[in-house]
Simulated scan of single mutants.
Amino acid sequence: MTTQPYNVVAEIDVSFDEHTAEQLLDPIADYSGAAGRSELGHTEVVFTLPADTLRQANTTALAILETYPWPLRSLRVLPTSDYDRLVDAIDVPPLVSVQEAADQLGISRQGVLKAITTGSLPAIRVGSTWIVRESAVRARAQRSA
């Protein structure tokens, strides 16, 4: 059998904030992991792992996800080639950094980070970097005006 990469997309039943982001990323750090919110607004982790079969990928993914203290809400495992095709078919919204969000909102970088951690500004954490949808920054700016 030939080992191939599989992508795992899992929703976890926990609030997404700076503290849980750290806990979510630790078990998947070696698997190019990312944590954020799913399209449904749930906490989501995405990572890539090598496996010989889909069954092995599922088993490994479940073993990694069982290290979390929170229940699993949903799980999707598919070959990376299929995952990439799905992602390529989705238009990625314009994203901005924390500093760019701060500049657009006229507040400090710390103010943006506080808004992210309180959940008033949705963001996605990739590694140690937060990214924010530009539309979320515009919506917050309009509410503040």
Rank of each mutant, 00 (worst) to 15 (best):
D82R: 08
L72Y: 02
Q56C: 00
A102G: 06
S32I: 01
A29M: 12
A35C: 13
S74E: 09
H42E: 13
P93Q: 12
G33E: 00
W70L: 12
T48F: 11
D52I: 05
A89N: 00
D103W: 02
Q99F: 15
E100L: 12
L72A: 06
S120C: 09
H42V: 02
Q99D: 12
D103G: 08
A89Y: 13
D17P: 11
Y31A: 09
F47E: 05
P50H: 03
T60E: 15
T3V: 06
E44G: 03
V126K: 06
L49C: 02
L65K: 11
V8S: 08
A102S: 03
A61G: 01
A34Y: 07
P71G: 12
D82G: 07
R76F: 04
S120T: 06
L78G: 01
V132W: 05
A123L: 06
T67I: 02
L54N: 02
D30M: 10
S32R: 12
I28F: 03
T129A: 15
T53L: 05
A89R: 06
P69K: 00
A145M: 04
A29T: 06
T129G: 04
D103L: 02
P71C: 03
I12L: 07
V98M: 04
G111T: 05
V77A: 01
S32T: 13
Q56P: 04
F16G: 11
G106A: 10
Y31N: 07
Q99Y: 15
V112W: 06
V126L: 10
R138Y: 09
S74Y: 07
P79Q: 08
Y83F: 15
V112G: 12
R55S: 10
I90P: 00
R76L: 07
A51Y: 10
S108T: 14
S108Q: 08
L40W: 03
T53E: 04
L24F: 11
T20W: 02
E11P: 03
I124N: 15
D103H: 10
R73P: 00
D82T: 10
Y68T: 00
T80E: 15
L49G: 08
A123Q: 10
R143C: 00
A51H: 12
E44S: 11
L105Y: 08
G119Q: 05
T43L: 04
L62R: 12
V87G: 06
A21W: 13
G119A: 01
L75A: 10
A123W: 01
D84H: 10
I124K: 14
T53Q: 02
A35F: 08
E44N: 05
S108P: 00
L54T: 07
P27L: 05
V126D: 12
H19W: 11
S32P: 00
L54P: 00
V96Y: 09
N7H: 02
S97T: 11
A57Y: 12
L40Q: 15
L78M: 12
T43Q: 03
L49V: 09
L113P: 08
T117M: 02
I28R: 03
Q104L: 13
E39L: 07
R125G: 03
M1Y: 09
T67P: 01
D88I: 01
M1R: 10
L95N: 09
S135Q: 14
G41I: 09
P69F: 05
Q56E: 15
A21R: 09
T48A: 13
Q104M: 06
A89I: 04
Q110K: 05
V137N: 11
A123S: 03
S108L: 05
R138L: 13
D52C: 02
D17F: 02
E18L: 13
T3W: 15
A141H: 01
K114N: 15
D52A: 14
E44A: 14
